[in-house]
Each structure stands twice: as structure tokens, then as C-alpha cells.
Design a protein around this nucleic acid. Structure first.
Lengths: 112, 112
DNA sequence: TTGACAGGTAACCATTTGGTTGCATATTAA
DNA sequence: TTAATATGCAACCAAATGGTTACCTGTCAA
């Protein structure tokens, strides 16, 4: 509950979901790149990114004077596991099992 | 964006997620029942339920002087479809296809 | 018919949120 | 070295949010 909260809050804002969309389209963008075309100041975008970082949805890496942002899909998957798959039992139980079997071989990341 | 927004906003609050949890545990509860044990006035709970209604996550039906609340899993599924399954392509594409076959009417447990 | 019960409505309040402006700092290029 | 570039930080602001109290309405049972 405590950890999900940051993710749900982060996803609650349309601008932040838009930022995630942009990163999903092209990962590793700088703050400046992420600002382009948005009707918002750079500082506002930076605040949104900070909230996404707090929710662990975005990580970054400094390169010179630039800050490269990377998306992290794990928290959303975790939430989906706890919320969507439970939502209508038991039809999706079989699905969850299948999902694990599908994702298991050769995958190293988001399945704990 | 416009329709998802209400759902994301509704899910952003912990009290509202708790209400959904309660309805998931037992569907069709009255306002009074949903208030029990919560550290919040009835009016506050009613406001939360109104927000869940706006997001189409909860529907209700009047029975005498009582208001029975029912959960609707569809919006969360829609969001999951648009967000989770897109999040790491293409590994989950096969999963989405399977999901549709699983969820198609008439299919129960016949996959294994 | 008259309370008691379930819920609705409205005014109000403190805090959070999403945004701004202004200025400071660090890195790169000329 | 100097100027432009990329980002950081802080103060401030309006509006939204989550909650309250107070009172009103409709329904059921005695």
C-alpha cells in the first residue's frame, strides 16, 4: 500500500503520463528534450520528473551537463499484478499462470 | 487521455483504493457499510464514491433508502491494456493475444 | 403519525498540487 | 577566458483536493 501509493499518485497526472509516453517512444532523453513541445516551463517538467523518480518509474544518469532519463516498467507491472489480475477472479488466474510461463524462459528482469 | 484521466485520478487516492478493495471483497454494499471502520465521516466516503462513479469504477442502485454500490472492473482492464501490455513490447504481445482468446465468451478453463 | 435511520447538500477549511518567475551553478564551445 | 547552454533551487501563487460541520430530505417501522 505504501509503495503503490507513490506510483498511483505519479500516474494520476496527465502531463506525467505524457512524459512516460515520450520516454517509452525514445528512452534516455535529456530534460531539455523532454521539454520540447510541452506548454510548460522546464522547471515544471523537472518537478514532474522528480515525482516519477520518487515512484521509481524513471531513473536518470548524468552525462556532462545533461541528465538522461530512462523509464522503468517494473512498478507498473507490479501494480498490474496486484490490481488487474485480482480484479476478476478466477478467469484471469489461468492468465497469470500463463503469463509467468511465457515470461519465465530467458527473461532476467521484471519477474521476481 | 480524456477518459483514462478520471480513472487514474480516482485510483490516485489510497482511501478510494481501499473502498474498491472492500467492494471487491463484498460487492453491493451500502454507503453505511462502506463507512464502517474508516477514520472518516460518511460525507467524505460519499465524496470518494462519487469520484469512483465519475471514473465508472463504481455503479450503484437504490434500494429503498439504501444505496447499494457495485464495482466495475472494465476501466482498470482498459487501462492495463493500454499501459501495461505496451510497456515492454514485444514480449507481452503474445500474452495480449492469449488474453483475448482466454477472455472470449464461452472459454472457461479449456487452455492447458 | 412520528421518530429513527440512510443518505444528500452546502459551506467552509487546511493542505497539496501544478505551475510560475528569478536567480545560481556547472559544463561546454568559441 | 568568456559566453552560451543545461540544469538546479527557492520563493511564491492560484486552484484543486480531502476533509470537516451543519442541516435538509426521503424512507421505514412502531
Amino acid at each position: 500500500m505504501t509503495d503503490d501509493d507513490a506510483v498511483f499518485r505519479a500516474l494520476a497526472d496527465g502531463s506525467r503520463r505524457q512524459l512516460l509516453d515520450r520516454l517509452r517512444a525514445r528512452d534516455g532523453q535529456t530534460l531539455g528534450q523532454l521539454c520540447q513541445g510541452l506548454a510548460m516551463t522546464r522547471q515544471a517538467v523537472a518537478k514532474h520528473l522528480a515525482i516519477l523518480e520518487e515512484a521509481n518509474l524513471v531513473a536518470w544518469h548524468r552525462q556532462g551537463r545533461e541528465k538522461l532519463h530512462f523509464i522503468n516498467p517494473v512498478p507498473i507491472h507490479q501494480i498490474a499484478r496486484r490490481w488487474v489480475t485480482q480484479f476478476d477472479q478466477p478467469r484471469l488466474d489461468a492468465l497469470a499462470a500463463l503469463k509467468e510461463r511465457l515470461e519465465a524462459p530467458g527473461t532476467t528482469d521484471d519477474i521476481e
